[in-house]
């Protein structure tokens, strides 16, 4: 069965609490780069919460928008990789094959969403912080580009379980770490090709939009506009 994984982020629910940011660090073995690394802009966040100011005091507004890899249908990152390290997988993910990557960083340049990060260092965890590492996820090393995978390890595990039990994957059974953690339930993950799934129902909302539509990358992350 063909699937197209996608995500809906409801900006009217999102409160900017950043639980997703830390959940992603914990799940995907993202390294912390420390003060000096952060000062040089080398943090490894796969997920960030953008914030936009509007107006001046006291009539001031602030808006939040979680941004992760948009898993584009027509991804600018895929066409520029000289070694096919980034490619489109059959389930509609922009996949990054770490052992093909030679670190040209063309993909990072091409990405209009700034969703890709580069390993400028070999990650180091002060012992025993290394014990927190998730054994289901590769630890990437210096010179590799990496980015959000929609928690592919969680997708794979549910797929293996579903083959085992011969039960189809239920809608909502797969939850990437960010979706799982989101306290305000602002994020929904699922199969956009299944018209009955929650994610595709929400994607048909009249509030639905995509980030930087004009680029034409056809993202599979759909934002629901905030109402006010």
């Amino acid at each position: 069965m063909k699937r197209q994984w996608g995500m809906v982020i409801d900006l009217d629910r999102c409160t900017g609490c950043e639980a997703c940011v830390v959940a992603c660090h914990a799940e995907n073995n993202l390294a912390t780069v420390g003060r000096d690394g952060a000062a040089r802009g080398r943090t490894m966040h796969w997920m960030r919460v953008e914030r936009y100011w509007e107006g001046e005091f006291p009539e001031v507004r602030l808006r939040f928008q979680p941004v992760l890899c948009q898993q584009c249908g027509d991804a600018p990152c895929e066409s520029v990789c000289p070694v096919y390290a980034t490619y489109h997988n059959p389930e509609g993910l922009n996949a990054q094959v770490y052992n093909r990557c030679i670190g040209t960083r063309y993909c990072g340049n091409a990405c209009p969403y700034n969703a890709r990060v580069f390993n400028f260092f070999n990650p180091v965890w002060d012992k025993p912080l290394d014990l927190q590492l998730n054994p289901d996820v590769s630890v990437r090393s210096v010179g590799i580009m990496e980015k959000c995978t929609f928690c592919i390890q969680r997708i794979k595990q549910v797929e293996i379980r579903s083959q085992e039990s011969k039960q189809p994957i239920a809608d909502g059974e797969i939850q990437p770490a960010c979706v799982q953690s989101c306290p305000a339930n602002a994020m929904v993950f699922g199969d956009l090709d299944d018209p009955k799934s929650k994610v595709s129902q929400l994607a048909r909302s009249n509030r639905a939009t995509r980030l930087l539509r004009e680029v034409g990358a056809q993202p599979n992350v759909i934002y629901l506009r905030s109402v006010s």
Partner: peptide, 14 residues
């Protein structure tokens, strides 16, 4: 993780 989580309003870290 908390030091490197950007404060959502200022985006400051560390």
């Amino acid at each position: 993780w908390m030091q490197e989580m950007p404060d959502v309003i200022s985006t400051a870290m560390w």
